[in-house]
């Protein structure tokens, strides 16, 4: 078992039924409509690693996050965490034990903390839910410890969430995630609702905690700069599929997929190198009616007939016919 990856996502799919209500379909005509939010995604995460998923809005990142933690049942494929399948009914008892070890940090710290609960009750909720510590005094001590760990004062537990800033609230959310001694934390855009100055503090806190506690992160973001700071490996998502996977540094130095190149070209640089940029053109197509073949072909400057008809497999870390056929040169990491 020790060789198996800690988190294994295999051919994960999720289809949403976005049809009109039954009565409207009968009266107005029209077929059932389905949206493939996630269309066959596979990746592994090793223990202690940060795997990042990046992509535009609507690429299915958050849907993946919700399926990995089990908030949303997948339509196909599966997630296995530490050898326990998240879907197998026979492993329900093991999954219940696994729950304690998986936590999530949400995007909006203004919505992820119950506004009517005091902070100490919020942070203690996982401790009580899993019955980890007996006795009110011991629980209170642990909550104080957790609040100090994330850079807050133990007395802050007596306050309500609205008395804190966005960054402080995200610290509280992190404290809650750590309360059950979680090992694997799914972070769904944890900093995108925060000021840039606060983002760095939260990211540094998360890295710090990772080093100290040996945490494994699945990090969802649309912000390449944030991902570069955090991730050891990165998967680039486009329209429900992973188009490129590579190590954190390689992706930035030697992007292969035309989409990744386009994204990196769009990152502003303060150095003002004056390099030639390819402007981002077009936007993500409607996932209800995705383009045939490679999903990126309508926006891709290298698309040919094969790209328009045949879906490229993820091979050598990239899903692109042009790269596989060596039609475009692939930069080599320094």
């Amino acid at each position: 078992m020790s060789n198996a990856p800690f988190v294994e996502v295999k051919d994960l799919r999720r289809v949403f039924d976005v049809s009109k209500p039954w009565l409207n379909r009968v009266l107005e005509g029209g077929e059932k409509q389905y949206l493939k939010a996630v269309d066959g995604i596979s990746f592994d995460i090793a223990r202690g690693e940060t795997f990042a998923l990046v992509g535009e809005s609507g690429s299915g990142k958050s849907t993946v996050a919700r399926m990995v933690v089990g908030l949303l049942p997948p339509s196909g494929g599966g997630v296995t965490i530490d050898g326990v399948s998240m879907a197998d009914a026979a492993q329900a008892a093991a999954r219940q034990r696994l729950r304690r070890r998986i936590q999530m940090i949400f995007q909006d710290p203004y919505a992820s903390l119950n506004p009517r609960w005091r902070v100490d009750r919020i942070v203690a909720e996982p401790i009580r839910a899993f019955d980890l510590i007996k006795g009110e005094r011991e629980i209170a001590n642990r909550v104080g410890e957790l609040l100090s760990l994330v850079g807050l004062h133990p007395d802050d537990g007596k306050k309500f969430p609205h008395e804190f800033s966005g960054g402080q609230r995200q610290r509280i959310a992190i404290a809650r995630a750590l309360a059950s001694n979680a090992e694997f934390i799914v972070c769904d855009e944890p900093t995108s609702a925060l000021d840039v100055s606060v983002q760095a503090q939260i990211l540094n806190l998360m890295r710090d905690l990772q080093d100290r506690l040996g945490l494994t992160y699945l990090f969802i973001s649309h912000n390449l700069a944030v991902v570069r700071h955090m991730a050891s490996r990165i998967g680039v998502m486009y329209l429900g599929r992973i188009v490129e996977v590579s190590g954190g540094r390689e992706l930035f130095q030697a992007p292969k997929h035309p989409y990744t190149r386009m994204l990196l070209d769009a990152v502003p640089d303060i150095g003002m190198t004056g390099r030639q940029r390819v402007p981002v053109n077009g936007e993500i197509p409607n996932p209800i009616n995705p383009p045939s073949g490679c999903p990126f072909n309508p926006r891709c400057p290298f698309a040919n007939d094969r790209c328009r008809t045949e879906r490229p497999p993820l091979d050598e870390g990239v899903a692109c016919h042009a790269v596989h056929e060596r039609r475009i040169d692939v930069p080599v990491a320094a």
């Binding site: 908030l71 219940q96 729950r99 999530m104 995007q107 992820s112 839910a129 899993f130």
Partner: peptide, 26 residues
């Protein structure tokens, strides 16, 4: 659909306590 309810569901808390302790006060 707010995340604090999702966070509670993530802990495996069953629907009745979620309704009474999280949703009702709000």
């Amino acid at each position: 659909n707010k995340d604090y309810v999702q966070a509670a569901r993530l802990l495996g808390i069953s629907p009745l306590p979620v309704m009474l302790k999280h949703l009702l006060p709000n």
